[in-house]
């Protein structure tokens, strides 16, 4: 294909996105679009899968049968999200095994928030309320993103995330209306999860390298800083309802701009965790790589069995 033909195709492609048309897997697309989507969608899928671990940590210790069932169901939803996001990625010509390989080798990233430990039951509430809350803010705009399979997956993911967020808030609410020990547990969880949740919305706009191109492709509709502001403005009144204190002495309502001012985020901590040196990075990776390696014989057996069955079917047919 000549350069001019490619340029033509690119123009047609950009015009389709501008008209809000969906790009489907078999449509022509620039290589960069394909690669960016694989990167972002797989990062999202990996976050779901690694995200199962900190909450999975409390399934065996959930304090009631109702909570145990709800937590199991929630972690199962995350596995489901991982599954459709990996499938959506596969439509772009990469296999799930390759994507896993990228996760296990450290080449692919996942949301850094899952590198913090879940040390009390209240963390199940805080994760639902704050982490899923921040995820929704990030993800709702993606329901209208330009790549069809991603947009459709996100519609379902967002519905379930919003349920998880309410469930997390409800856990916190119960703790905050319980005994003083329970309320302390809730406050302690908020203290530990608040700042990492703000960091979850990504580096400041000045530091964010992917924003401009992603905006054009509708992979991003608002900047990280705008999303963070939205998250804070939405969450502070919820903390008030719970009677909890946001651990930020600089947090105050700014009448003029109609939103909250907030304190400085510790970006050194953010980069430390992103680069693999957070409190649980190594544990999370060991768990994922371990599950994969220990499961190899099972996957091999399933393949071998399927091949035998197929061969038998052929033998019978002849």
């Amino acid at each position: 294909m000549s350069n001019e033909q490619i340029k033509n195709l690119e123009e047609i492609f950009e015009a389709r996105i501008a008209r809000d048309e969906k790009i489907e897997p078999k449509d022509w697309m620039p290589e960069k679009y394909r690669k960016t989507h694989i990167r972002q969608m797989s990062q999202h899928a990996h976050s779901e899968i690694v995200g199962m671990l900190p909450e999975g940590n409390w399934i065996s210790r959930a304090p009631s049968l109702r909570r145990k069932a709800a937590l199991l169901a929630k972690v199962q939803d995350e596995a489901g999200h991982g599954l459709y996001l990996y499938s959506a990625c596969e439509t772009l010509g990469i296999s799930r095994d390759e994507l896993y390989e990228q996760l296990h080798s450290g080449k692919a990233k996942y949301s850094s928030i899952f590198n913090y430990p879940t040390v009390t039951w209240a963390d199940m509430g805080a994760i639902g309320w704050l982490v899923d809350g921040a995820a929704i803010i990030n993800q709702v705009p993606l329901c209208n993103t330009s790549f069809g399979p991603y947009a459709r997956a996100m519609v379902r993911v967002c519905k379930e995330e919003s349920f998880h967020q309410r469930q997390g808030f409800e856990i916190m609410h119960k703790l905050c209306n319980g005994t003083p020990e329970q309320k302390d547990m809730a406050q302690d969880a908020l203290n530990r999860w608040w700042w990492p949740s703000l960091m979850m919305l990504g580096p400041t706009d000045a530091e964010s390298i992917h924003t401009e191109q992603s905006m054009k492709w509708k992979l991003k509709r608002k900047s990280n800083d705008e999303l963070r502001q939205q998250f804070i403005d939405q969450t502070v009144p919820q903390a008030d309802v719970l009677g909890l204190t946001i651990p930020d002495k600089d947090l105050k309502w700014n009448e003029e701009k109609g939103s909250y001012d907030f304190g400085e985020i510790d970006w050194d901590e953010f980069w430390q965790v992103v680069k693999g040196h957070g409190p649980s990075n190594k544990k999370r990776m060991k768990a994922r790589v371990g599950a994969w390696e220990e499961g190899a014989w099972v996957r091999d057996a399933a393949m071998a069995h399927a091949e035998k069955k197929e061969a038998n079917k052929l033998k019978k047919a002849i």
């Binding site: 899968i49 199991l72 972690v75 596995a79 599954l83 599950a291 996957r299």
Partner: peptide
């Protein structure tokens, strides 16, 4: 429930969780 997130494939994780949920019900 102890296995959730540690299975050999995502599909078996989901199925194992489903069984656990039925049993808890």
């Amino acid at each position: 429930g102890e296995l959730c997130g540690h299975g050999p494939t995502l599909e078996t994780d989901i199925a194992g969780t489903n069984i656990a949920l039925d049993l808890i019900g």
